[in-house]
């Protein structure tokens, strides 16, 4: 879970609903239970405020971390040799590399450079 998600409405609403339902059940038993419910509600509210305040003072260190694994697709100009290797600075598409080890005739070249996200990004829409 992302650190900022703790402040979202979802994480506020779920415990609140739980407290409300519990409170409603307790209410049927008498006045003192209602007061307990009220107190729990107040405590939760202030706990939420406190959490929101204290957490915000800490920065999320993961924000500047690399978000992609960069892969380099290497192909041969002569045969159907294919290889995926790790990106190294200085690589670019159509860069010529060494002679192909498979056919010993063609030259290996970078056919593509692409990024694979390290974390799941957007959810696929089902509508």
């Amino acid at each position: 879970m992302n650190k900022t998600e703790i402040f979202t409405f979802k994480w506020f609403l779920l415990p609140l609903t739980a407290i409300t339902i519990t409170g409603a059940i307790l209410m049927s038993f008498g006045l003192i239970q209602l007061l307990t419910f009220g107190l729990a509600y107040i405590l939760f509210f202030f706990a939420y405020l406190f959490t929101a305040t204290s957490k915000s003072s800490k920065a999320d260190l993961s924000i500047t971390a690399p978000a992609f694994r960069i892969e380099v697709l290497v192909k041969c100009t002569h045969c159907d040799y294919k290889e995926v290797k790790k990106f190294t600075p200085g690589d670019y598409v159509f860069k010529k590399l060494e002679t192909c080890k498979q056919c010993n005739e063609g030259t290996l070249y970078i056919a593509g450079i692409y990024g694979i996200p390290l974390y799941p990004t957007e959810e696929e829409s089902d509508v």
Partner: peptide, 24 residues
């Protein structure tokens, strides 16, 4: 005021992240 307080803290947290990205 409570709402403002919560929002200010949320923005502050994001602003810190923005600053971190800018500095980096």
């Amino acid at each position: 005021r409570f709402q403002l307080w919560i929002w200010i803290n949320q923005i502050k947290a994001s602003l810190l992240q923005l600053k971190q990205m800018d500095v980096q």
